[in-house]
Deep mutational scan, measured.
Amino acid sequence: MTFKLIINGKTLKGETTTEAVDAATAEKVFKQYANDNGLDGEWTYDDATKTFTITE
């Protein structure tokens, strides 16, 4: 399955995708991506669209 991450950061904005077997796996990938890029914010997830959002 394809999951999307929408980034609404103070300095970084955009989106990225990952292929994962489930939402929990995708969340780990996206949280590592956010950590690697210095993002810290509030996370939301929409199961209907398989989309995570981080807002700083």
Results as ranks from 00 to 15, higher is better:
Thr2Asn: 09
Thr2Ala: 07
Thr49Leu: 09
Tyr45Gly: 00
Thr16Lys: 12
Val29Gln: 09
Asp46Phe: 04
Thr25Met: 11
Asn8Leu: 14
Met1Gln: 14
Thr55Pro: 01
Glu27Trp: 15
Asp47Ala: 11
Ala20Met: 03
Tyr33Lys: 03
Glu27Ala: 13
Gly9Cys: 10
Lys4Ser: 06
Thr51Lys: 03
Gly14Ala: 11
Thr18Asp: 02
Phe30Gly: 00
Lys10Glu: 07
Gly9Pro: 03
Gln32Leu: 09
Glu19Pro: 05
Leu39Asp: 02
Asp36Arg: 09
Lys4Thr: 14
Phe30Leu: 04
Thr55Asp: 06
Phe3Met: 02
Thr18Met: 11
Glu15Arg: 05
Thr17Pro: 02
Asp36Tyr: 09
Asp36Trp: 07
Ile7Val: 09
Thr51Gly: 02
Thr11Tyr: 12
Thr51Arg: 03
Leu39Arg: 02
Gly41Ser: 02
Val21Lys: 09
Val21Trp: 13
Thr25Ser: 13
Glu19Cys: 11
Glu56Pro: 10
Phe3Gly: 00
Thr11Cys: 09
Thr51Leu: 03
Lys13Cys: 09
Asp40Trp: 13
Lys10Tyr: 08
Ala34Asn: 02
Ile7Asp: 01
Thr55Val: 06
Trp43Lys: 00
Lys13Glu: 05
Glu15Pro: 04
Thr44Lys: 09
Leu12Pro: 04
Leu12Val: 13
Glu56Ile: 14
Gly41Phe: 04
Gly38Val: 04
Leu5Gly: 01
Asn35Ala: 14
Ala26Val: 02
Glu42Met: 14
Thr25Phe: 08
Ala26Gly: 02
Asp46Ile: 05
Thr55His: 08
Val21Thr: 12
Thr25Gln: 11
Phe3Gln: 00
Thr49Ile: 08
Thr25Pro: 02
Thr44Cys: 06
Asp47Glu: 13
Asn8Glu: 11
Glu19Met: 14
Lys10Asp: 07
Thr25Gly: 12
Ala26Pro: 00
Lys28Ser: 11
Asp40Arg: 15
Gly9Asn: 06
Lys31Asp: 02
Ala26Arg: 00
Phe3Leu: 01
Tyr33Arg: 03
Ile54His: 02
Val21Phe: 12
Gly38Arg: 08
Glu27Pro: 00
Glu15Val: 10
Thr17Asn: 06
Asp36Gly: 05
Gly41Met: 03
Asp36Val: 13
Thr44Pro: 00
Ala24Val: 11
Gly38Met: 09
Phe52His: 02
Phe30Arg: 00
Ala20Ile: 02
Glu42Tyr: 12
Gly14His: 11
Thr55Leu: 05
Gln32Val: 07
Asp22Gln: 03
Phe3His: 03
Asn35Gln: 14
Gly41Val: 03
Leu5Trp: 03
Thr2Val: 15
Asn37Glu: 07
Lys50Asp: 03
Phe3Lys: 00
Ala48Gln: 11
Gly38Cys: 09
Asn35Phe: 15
Trp43Tyr: 03
Thr18Glu: 04
Ala26Gln: 01
Lys10Thr: 13
Thr55Arg: 06
Glu27Lys: 09
Trp43Phe: 05
Phe30Glu: 00
Thr44Met: 07
Tyr45Pro: 00
Asp46Val: 06
Glu42Ile: 14
Lys28Met: 14
Trp43Cys: 03
Leu12Arg: 07
Lys13Tyr: 13
Glu15Lys: 05
Ala23Glu: 08
Thr17His: 08
Met1Pro: 14
Lys10Gly: 09
Glu27Tyr: 15
Lys4Leu: 08
Thr51Asn: 03
Leu5His: 00
Ala23Thr: 07
Glu42Leu: 13
Val21Gly: 11
Ile54Trp: 04
Gln32Cys: 05
Ala24Ser: 07
Ala26Ile: 01
Ala20Cys: 07
Asp22Glu: 04
Ala24Lys: 11
Lys28Trp: 10
Trp43Leu: 06
Val29Gly: 04
Gly38Ser: 09
Trp43Val: 03
Ile7Ala: 04
Gly38Asp: 09
Met1His: 14
Trp43Gln: 01
Lys4Ala: 05
Phe52Gly: 00
Thr17Glu: 09
Ile7Leu: 08
Lys28Ile: 10
Asp46Lys: 04
Glu42Arg: 11
Phe3Ala: 01
